[in-house]
Design a protein around this nucleic acid. Structure first.
Lengths: 204, 204
DNA sequence: TTGTTAGTATACCAATCGGTATACGGTTTG
DNA sequence: CAAACCGTATACCGATTGGTATACTAACAA
């Protein structure tokens, strides 16, 4: 039981290194295409060390998702809850936050996206599903609350959430294929255009 | 060289059966999570037979994509090219076609979607990438041609293509999680609402 | 000192991976 | 008939899969 002042000379926190390497490799090659040995080698440790921290390969993914998704969900929820009467400002803030998250933690964002679209019966999909549902619900509840401004919401909040999430995800995906590191994607004007179109349609 | 009148008693065309089983399994578990042996067993044949028809596991995927994607692309292109002055009618037709494709060939559609979002360095992604690019281009070119009606298109055709594709994909994805077999998704009114919102925004 | 515990590595497991060498039956062609 | 060939299966390949039994080391607690 290490109380405090523990040293262990190197102490580069193997657990964190495993998580970091796992994200990189899962992003790069996909969850199923990456072996446990490969992660261990990349992290500069051996398999039993990995299995000491995580109960299985799936457990590693679950831990990874939990530690990364919870702050993201909290961040989105905070923005959605700060809604004070102007829906498109909040949507703009949400869109900027999503683009920002994708830029700051690019590999994890795309890992998340790929897991969300992966096969239903794949364990990796089942692991990511609750977090994606949570994000979807944050959006849905925002549209429900924004109903007073948008008007005639009855039942369409989920449709709006679908469309908004779809647009943003696809925007980030395509922007990423263009620029090397999502530089263009963070252009405030472009994001504003996306939100504006979402709110008002193609016709100016 | 079988010219005609060939029999071979059973003749349920093992090649087709392999393709069919591969789609089902790839959809269900993901390309990397499915072994060649598993496909062979499901098709009721053995591995060498599979390797007789396809040069490798990746070759099987490539053949599968080619035979399925080409008619889909042709169908979308035909609709996009039939554009005669009313963009939202064409968009509605495109949206209906996409939903229809997803309903008719549900497993393949979702396989396509998952491959499109899978890891960049994964061979499966590289195999699907050209077909997705082609579909994206069909949309982009449509918006470019529709510029005369929509007006002020300059450079935004790709943005519109992104948004449209994103909305439809996400719509089908979420609808699928609800209904068992995309029954609700094909509701013409719901699709029309999606297109209408895309064209005119949330405000009615 | 003597345990206890956290963390790590060596060495191993059965199972499966993608892929193939080879042969064999059936059909067609000469 | 005999050669050629298509389609198929038996049996195998080395490599890798996810996972573990065991022992070791360093640090801390008694």
């Amino acid at each position: 039981m290490k109380t405090e002042g523990y040293s262990l000379e190197d102490k580069t926190d193997n657990r964190a290194k495993i998580l970091s390497c796992a994200i990189h490799l899962f992003y790069q090659k996909g969850y199923d295409a990456v072996g446990v040995q490969e992660i261990a080698t990349a992290a500069g440790i051996t398999k039993p060390t990995l299995y000491y921290y995580f109960k299985s390969k799936l457990g590693l993914l679950e831990a990874l998702l939990q530690e990364k998704c919870e702050p993201i969900c909290a961040r989105l929820e905070a923005i959605a809850n700060s809604y004070q009467g102007e829906p498109k400002d909040t949507l703009y803030a949400l869109a900027c936050a999503l683009v920002d998250i994708a830029k700051e933690d690019r590999e994890f964002y795309f890992l998340l996206l790929s897991l969300n679209y992966s096969a239903r019966e794949n364990e990796a999909f089942k692991a990511v599903s609750p977090y994606m549902k949570q994000m979807f619900q944050i959006l849905t509840e925002f549209f429900l609350r924004a109903g007073d401004k948008i008007g005639n919401m009855n039942g369409r909040q989920e449709q709006f959430a679908i469309a908004f999430q779809g647009i943003i995800s696809h925007y980030i995906l395509v922007m990423d294929e263009r620029g090397p590191s999502l530089e263009e994607a963070t252009d405030p004007h472009a994001i504003w255009e996306l939100v504006r179109q979402f709110m008002y349609g193609i016709y100016s």
